[in-house]
Write a protein that binds this DNA or RNA. Structure first.
Lengths: 331, 331
DNA sequence: TTAATTTTCGGAACCGGTTCCATTTGAGAT
DNA sequence: ATCTCAAATGGAACCGGTTCCGAAAATTAA
């Protein structure tokens, strides 16, 4: 591997001149040619460590993600990556395997590695997060959760919840089980539910019960089975698509037909909801687009340009077979 | 951010002494204490660029992946990442969005960034790959494809194909459509088919036809629909789970019931095959474990220890509802 | 033609570590 | 008390770039 000094010697100039050539300083035409030739001849390419050492900065955006094997995460990452590439930045992924402690470590580690910025696919913001973000002086962007102290890009959970509520009511459902998650997750656990509640409060003949379960399918399946026996709702409104899948499995095992005997909705718009049969009605979020937007946002922050503190990403209700129209049913 | 010089001054020693302390050289007890205190006091942590610049090497393994939104890819990455962390290495992901040219670029880019090693989740090995691997002098490990010139970790595609063939025959199926992919993909397109063919050749009353489609669900769905009409097989043996999902969709839209009217099998063991109903019988590969094994393998190569050239990862036939036992059916 | 600019270029310092080498220090042996 | 030898330490060079500064060369103005 050749160094800038090799090039300088080959071209018969000083290495400062080569550096200037590389970075667009003033270089004479004749020397330009010589350097150019020396570079193509050797296939020279600057050592990024030497550059970063001097610059005290990289063009890498560190992205912290709680898990890699989730549709939302991978789509978001793809969006971030593609957009960053276009802007000549690199993405570095740190997978924390849903371990909050590792998230904190990653923040410090990224700062130490002189990342230009940090994107966190957030699930929960603890005091330790805040402390870490404040002590490292690196621009930070949260995706998926909002926090007054930091820039963030969120999905429109509240309105998605509201829209889903309206949708379900319009289809004629009144006996409803809302299967949510812990309120520590503001976006998924609180906002979606609040939006849904608002829709419910606009009608008055509703029998709605709120339940809480975990994010994974087996847990949702267990919860759903219990709820079916104790409440027998006409529809499950689930806070995530995975939970909806759990409900689906529970209803299979209980011999309940969807959507005739029980309807189900989700949130997320995961691919799988469209692949399976019956397809699940869901509020689709645009993860990839959100990732692209996040990439643009963090670069604005890196370049210290002003940018609004919170961006809201769109959603869309996707109607599939898992919800019937009760109003069209024969009496 | 403090530097090693700050620590040296604070502790009243030379920076070489601090460096020695950090790297386990001989340092007196008294000075050890002083340095230790200075470090905790300032929260010092060495600049990785300065280190890498001097060392001409990093402890990062570059991993090139054709796509992030695939079960196989994300599981493999998780395995690699977790194992590397344990061994004090880092993983850097380069997503190429199924663009072979980008794979080549990534190889050179990784070499330039002084990666300790490169792992490629391979789909196809072209001459350009070979050229790139040979010109950069970085240890390389292929996952998923075999090549005589390079180290590789492959799934046992041939035997999985064979086992699947045996399984299908044992269940009594004789009118079989094998829905495969391009032979440019040696593992998926050739090996699985060869194994399957071997099983078929051991019986003689078989009506098997071989078809080729693409990796994505809609393409598989279209192909399946045509095949259903022209051949009407009793079972589809699909080269991947995604193709099997395409067949499932096609049969829904054609009003064909699974497994009563048509059986389906896949390869991969993707999560979704167990979530949906009916579950798909599939040859499950152990992607995460393969990733862990790959991580260990590449580190062996990095440390120039001898290691066998090709490792074969296990598989397991998972029996689900998408295949009936014809022999148990009432006549 | 000479003076005043402007452009081009080389030298040296610097970024923050590691490592080699020479010197000092201290413990143990004689 | 003196000599050895190993451990402990400091100084300097080096990794491969960038950037500042001043000198030299080329251009323009007078």
């Amino acid at each position: 591997m050749s160094t800038i000094l090799d090039i300088a010697k080959l071209a018969g100039v000083a290495k400062s001149t080569v550096s200037r050539y590389l970075n667009g300083g003033s270089v004479g035409e004749a020397t330009k040619k010589k350097i150019e030739q020396a570079i193509t001849e050797t296939g020279y390419s600057p050592n990024p460590f030497a550059q970063s050492l001097k610059a005290k900065k990289t063009n890498i955006i560190g992205t912290i993600v709680p898990r890699l094997d989730s549709y939302a995460a991978s789509q978001t990452l793809i969006g971030i990556d593609e957009q960053l590439k276009k802007m000549n930045y690199q993405m570095l992924i740190s997978n924390t395997s849903q371990n909050l402690e590792r998230e904190i470590e990653s923040i410090y580690s990224f700062a130490n590695q002189k990342m230009a910025g940090i994107i966190l696919l957030a699930t929960e913001i603890t005091d330790q997060h805040i402390e870490a973000f404040e002590s490292v002086k690196v621009p930070v962007l949260l995706i998926g959760q909002e926090h007054e102290d930091f820039h963030s890009l969120i999905h429109d959970d509240f309105h998605a919840g509201y829209a889903m509520g309206r949708y379900v009511l319009e289809k004629g459902y009144r006996k409803i089980a809302y299967l949510g998650v812990t309120e520590r997750d503001i976006s998924v656990g609180v906002k979606r539910k609040q939006g849904f509640k608002k829709a419910i409060q606009e009608v008055d003949d509703c029998d709605v019960r709120f339940y809480e379960t975990l994010f994974n399918i087996p847990a949702a399946q267990t919860s759903a089975k219990e709820i079916i026996h104790e409440f027998r709702p006409a529809i499950f409104v689930c806070a995530t698509d995975n939970i909806a899948l759990g409900v689906l499995k529970a209803s299979y095992s209980e011999g309940i037909t969807i959507p005739q005997d029980l309807a189900v909705t989700g949130f997320g718009g995961y691919d799988v909801t469209g692949i399976i049969h019956p397809g699940i009605t869901t509020a689709k979020f645009f993860y990839k687009e959100a990732g692209e937007s996040a990439a643009r946002h963090i670069i604005e922050l890196v370049n210290e340009r002003s940018v609004e503190k919170v961006t809201v990403s769109k959603f869309e209700i996707i109607e599939r077979e898992s919800v019937d129209n009760l109003l069209n049913r024969p009496l």
